[in-house]
């Protein structure tokens, strides 16, 4: 979608997911590092979403615009909810909850890429 930013988003998603799984294996509840990692990942997603929305409303034509905008919304909403849910019960499984959110968000970004490319042949 937005070249470099998209790659950064995948890397961040993978890093957050792996760290979440790592702390589950090490039997540690989510801590400050998870919050920072999710915060950085979320910042990348928000920047990507803002740029994409601006482009869509300033002339970029997409064949499935409503689907694109809904996926964009989903891509920024999942991680804050996942982090909240993961830290509400501080057990080892919080890390895996964060990992599930990161993987789901990564798939949403991938879908965004397909929808974006469809509009640019």
């Amino acid at each position: 979608m937005i070249g470099v930013l998209e790659v950064v988003a995948y890397v961040a998603a993978a890093a957050v997911a792996l760290y979440g799984l790592f702390t589950t294996i090490r039997n540690r509840p989510p801590d400050r590092t998870h919050r920072i990692a999710v915060g950085v990942f979320e910042a990348v997603l928000v920047v990507q979403a803002v740029i994409a929305v601006v482009r869509v409303f300033t002339g970029v034509q997409l064949p499935e615009q409503s689907t694109f905008l809904i996926y964009l919304l989903v891509s920024v909403c999942v991680m804050p909810i996942a982090l909240q849910f993961a830290t509400a019960e501080p057990t080892r499984w919080g890390g895996t909850v964060i990992a599930v959110g990161a993987i789901g968000t990564g798939v949403a970004v991938w879908r965004l890429h397909d929808l974006w490319v469809a509009g640019h042949g």
Binding site: E64, S66, T67, I70, Y71, V74, V78, I81, A82, F85, A86, E89, T91, W93, G94, T96, V97, V100, G101, G104, A108
Partner: peptide, 24 residues
Amino acid sequence: SGPGRVLIAVYAIFALSATARAAV
């Protein structure tokens, strides 16, 4: 509780994506 929270997270993501897709 415990690993059940992971299961709920997966179900929630499917609830969100399936519902959003169908709505569109």
